[in-house]
Design a protein around this nucleic acid. Sequence first.
DNA 1: TTGTAGGCGTTATCAG
DNA 2: CTGATAACGCCTACAA
Lengths: 333, 333
Amino acid sequence: MNIYDVSEKAGVSIATVSRVINGNSKVSEKTKQKVLRVMEELGYTPNVFARGLGLNTMKTIGIMCADSSDPFLANAVYYLERELRKNGYDSFLCCTGYELKNKQNYLKLLLSKRIDALVIVGSYFLEANTKDNTYIMEAADEVPIMLMNGNLNKPNIYCTLCDDHQAVYDATSLLLNQGKKDILFLYTSKSYSSIQKLNGFKAALMDKLHTLKEENIHICPATIEGTRDLLLHLSMNGLKFNAVIAAEDILGVGAIKYAKLKGLSIPEDLSIIGYNNSLLATCCEPELTSVDNHVETLSITTVNTLMRVLNNQKAPNKTTISNDLVERYTTNF
Amino acid sequence: MNIYDVSEKAGVSIATVSRVINGNSKVSEKTKQKVLRVMEELGYTPNVFARGLGLNTMKTIGIMCADSSDPFLANAVYYLERELRKNGYDSFLCCTGYELKNKQNYLKLLLSKRIDALVIVGSYFLEANTKDNTYIMEAADEVPIMLMNGNLNKPNIYCTLCDDHQAVYDATSLLLNQGKKDILFLYTSKSYSSIQKLNGFKAALMDKLHTLKEENIHICPATIEGTRDLLLHLSMNGLKFNAVIAAEDILGVGAIKYAKLKGLSIPEDLSIIGYNNSLLATCCEPELTSVDNHVETLSITTVNTLMRVLNNQKAPNKTTISNDLVERYTTNF
DNA sequence: TTGTAGGCGTTATCAG
DNA sequence: CTGATAACGCCTACAA
């Protein structure tokens, strides 16, 4: 079943059928209807491969992320897919895991599929070491690259991110203002956005306290138990703290579990602020105060920018979105 | 840059280059090495469209689910993608939302992309009304269809599901055995697996109690607050219950929130059992006893079966996986 | 407004 | 083992 079958049955040439399919050039209303009717009858669908071969595009966007089962990334993937589809694009999803080597291989694979653009859902994707990101830079020579929550400065790379620095700066300041000076900062990896958060934390401390204890900053396993145990361990070793800022909600939940185990009352003995405002934040007890970084807005903005790029319109290389604190019961501002 | 460039530079015909690329037919070691070297030098990658055009396949599997941001589905998507890629297949992800009309449209779209097979992540996907599933049945005429947590009996449809009936039967029995007779059953939709769970619930009640109260069975919004409020409402209307079986963890968490609001102690006044053993189950307080339905095993099995189908090996039309109860602190068996 | 014919980059079938 | 050549199905000048 192909365009020839349709053209034959409709008594026109394949060119005319093609015109009807693509709807741009002029075709008389009468023939158009006839062709449409035949296509309907035959249940004809254009072959995307043949079409792709000529046009060298299949209207497909690659999406890469480390792990689509992470609640934040899962949301991002969901919204991205939805928005892309609204614009007539499909998406190839590709979860790479956390190893650089795999990320590089998957990127190559995706490019070989002739995707029209690549969306990288940052957070865990960008390496702290700049050199390790050259493979992304190089890919930008082939297709536009959209970075969600990441920042690389190069033509054809478009970044959409939330102002993590500011958000953590503000959160930290709120705690400091109410006299909570022994604040722990927990994060899971040296991703771009983690570094931003960390810097926001440090900046607030320096501004208000003019001092900074490195022993209050910890990389932490991305699990509830792991976080709980780390805090337990730190506390046993004599570290004093009365607040925790977590770079992810799951770490915040871990901190709650720690407080419970130690019989600390929240937020009096221990204030806790999470990040992402995910489902986890409303699930725990007490419910977690968390920074909402607007995944949906972030995703929509990313796709909108991408569409501008693909349509050869001017598009900003960097878009920053502000985020806000959703206060629940692990703080009392 | 195409196969001609390579053939010219290597001094062989395009046929030979093609053979080297595909590695099946016999090529002398010497020419093979020469061709490989040239391909490397030129950085040549075969054009997937041209290839697809000839072979009429692009080694791509469609994945449909209602909402990839649902924790259970997010996990399923993650594992499916990983397993498919291991087998050299890419995946098109497609989140349809919950409306039948959209599901139908997306399915058509996916088929028009010439996917090699379709994986439908069931749960919310199958309609209670059999007629509403005919579009899936029809699709099975075109490509193999894998149903995860769904059941449709037709050639070329392969179902992988967990024994939800048994799991809920067992859970209910445990509660009954310890004298908890007023058990509420909460679920969110009339999906195939929901019905299985419900039937398991009913069967256990009939077997042990020889009676069944319809007012103890409720469809419930899939949110924490929605569940909490529903229970509050039921209780205010005089309904007595001392246990809740939830068809999803999130409903279980809602029940916990309800208990907290009412000052009930868990599990003494109210026992709660969730379903899916998702992150939510360890996040709440007390942690939720939950049925683990082994998403990972389910996903792996689905892909393994699919690979058999695609390789024309015999494959079972229905595979059932058992699941087990993970006891935490919302029950005391 | 419509039709013809060439090209897109592979793979596969034949001969050699 | 290797090479020429015909598909594969569509799009798009160019011609009519």
